[in-house]
Amino acid sequence: MLEVKNLSKTYDGGVQALKNVSFNVKQGEFLAVIGLSGSGKSTLLRCINRLIEPTGGQIVWDGQDVTAASQDEMRHIRRKIGMVFQHFNLVSRSKVITNVLAGRLGYVNPMLSALNRFPKSDVAMALDQLDRVGIKNQAYKRADELSGGQQQRVGIARAMMQQPAMILADEPVASLDPVLAHSIMQYLEKINKEDGVTVLCSLHFLDLVHRYADRAIALNAGELKFDGSPADINDEKFREIYGKDAERVG
């Protein structure tokens, strides 16, 4: 369903963040992306919905060439790809419900939405999504009044408002404590298993990868070092991914 072919990204400063990365993702898969900080995980995820313009290679999604899409087509494609961020990226001064409704922006009438008017069905859907992540009662609070775990649930609800076929999760639990991390990961798992949404999730902790992912790919300095089942990451592979001096923790 998602094909990434020889993807490369060189930033303006000359830093090569991705070097000829190729992999495929099947419909309904839970794919973990692992690697050190700065190995290119975030760049990879952002290239897929072209928040960052790749400098080489091709991305095909659902038979559509993402890298060649025009701006309007790109917006069309982005609607079907939800995104969840490490720092939640909520608009902190807006209400929770407004943040969630923002997930519908690609679908609704641009003029009306600019006046903050959404169809009733969308508002009901937003409340449903908030209910699903267990914070319906917080819907009319300001986003920055919520705790970190709650904010990430708002982030998931926002992504789900897009009725996505795929979710890109950029280290969704890196700024949360371990207990909250599991609860957020369980939401993603639920979305993956129940709704059949493909999930691409970059993660730091290998135990989370083992626990949730069907498959893992690993990046080191922009190069693909591993592509397979999480169970296949042995000590040798581990050192290849994380460097010679790395030690397993947790």
Binding site: R46, N49, L51, R75, H76, I77, R78, R79, I81, G82, M83, F85, H87, F88, N89, L90, V91, S92, R93, S94, T98, A102, G103, R104, L105, G106, Y107, P110, S113, A114, N116, G155, R158, M161, Q162, L168
Partner: peptide
């Protein structure tokens, strides 16, 4: 820039991005 990026990722156009991500800030 985070909220800006998040709103863009939903498929919002430029006007919507400004109204939802820039103006509240």
């Amino acid at each position: 820039s985070g909220p800006l990026e998040a709103i863009q990722a939903t498929g919002a156009n430029r006007l919507q991005t400004i109204v939802f991500a820039v103006v509240p800030q």
